[in-house]
């Protein structure tokens, strides 16, 4: 591939991810509003929020690590997007693969954790401790799912996983071939989004939004950007693993939005679990489903 072409791809992939991510945030808020019989925010609301937050005049920093943490939180996702193939663009997906992508997605969390740590606010620290605990909860079923898919496909190369599904048509989609893994994956994905009922580390009424408690202005803005990327990455990864990726941008986006709509619609019907209940839940049902699904694949 010509270097210039690759460069354009590497620039476009995070940019598109950000824009689609903002639309996903909008969808999430609209769905929440509709479930609560409200109208919801206007179309450009996510953009307004981000621009406003970055346009604050005075902002509070608790030190260099606080700043760097936010940079890492945004930068890690920007990098991760280039490993996630989209229709017509593969970026450097072939140089990393699925496991690398999963680990690269932990970098933003690590950055956030460091940044929050330096804020010297116990609410934030409790939030991070809970977020890491939640990660321990949902990553176990997620890993079973990832293992199953990669083993069935015989590769960790996402481009190939998608190509195999597209070549065989609907009957070879992950969701048809491995329905149990797909369900377990959906639950794990829901938990990884940190939405209700798995919202233990935000918990506004309890620990004052946990990690975000000391974030003002561009710090909070960075986290809003990160949320856009997070929604996009999670849903696109699910689409790539189970729904055959996308042949065109149209069906790709429809699939991504639909996948995201499922956990989001469930989320706003529930209050919050306690930490140990979340662990118990995630280590029981999705793991059982995943292991049975895995047995079918092996």
């Amino acid at each position: 591939m010509a270097p210039i072409e690759l460069f354009i791809e590497l620039t476009l992939m995070p940019l598109i991810a950000f824009i689609v991510g903002m639309m996903m945030v909008l969808m999430m808020r609209r769905i929440a509003a509709r479930i609560q019989r409200r109208i919801g925010p206007p179309f450009f609301q996510p953009l307004y929020d981000i621009v406003k937050l970055h346009g604050k005049r005075t902002q509070v920093s608790h030190g260099l690590i606080h700043d760097i943490g936010i940079v890492m939180a945004m930068g890690g996702y920007i990098a991760a997007e280039t490993l996630l193939p989209v229709p017509g663009m593969n970026g450097i997906a072939e140089k990393g693969g699925l496991i690398t992508l999963l680990y690269l997605m932990m970098i933003p969390s690590l950055g956030l954790a460091l940044g929050v740590g330096q804020c010297a606010n116990p609410n934030g620290s409790i939030g991070i401790a809970r977020a890491l605990t939640a990660m321990l909860a949902y990553d176990i079923p997620l890993v079973i799912v990832i293992f199953g898919v990669a083993y069935a496909a015989g590769t960790t190369n996402l481009v190939e996983i998608i190509a195999t599904q597209q070549a065989g048509g609907f009957a070879t989609w992950g969701v048809v071939e491995m329905p149990l893994l797909a369900i377990a994956g959906l639950i794990a994905m829901h938990a990884s989004l940190g939405k209700q009922p798995f919202e233990i580390y935000i918990a506004p009424a309890e620990i004052a939004t946990g990690p975000m408690v000391e974030m003002s202005g561009k710090y909070l803005g960075g986290l809003f950007v990160m949320q856009c990327f997070q929604l996009y990455t999670t849903s696109v990864l699910y689409v790539s693993l189970f729904l055959g990726g996308g042949t065109t941008w149209f069906d790709f986006l429809i699939k991504s939005f639909l996948v995201l709509a499922i956990p989001v619609s469930i989320a706003y019907l529930f209050p919050r679990y306690r930490t140990e209940d979340l662990l118990r839940l995630m280590w029981k049902w999705p793991v059982i489903l995943g292991l049975i699904g895995l047995a079918f694949v092996m």
Binding site: R38, G40, P41, P42, A208, E214
Partner: peptide, 13 residues
């Protein structure tokens, strides 16, 4: 929220 107004928890935000 129609007007983009939403409640927040900590004064920083």
């Amino acid at each position: 929220e129609r007007l983009g107004i939403q409640p927040m928890v900590s004064p920083r935000q």
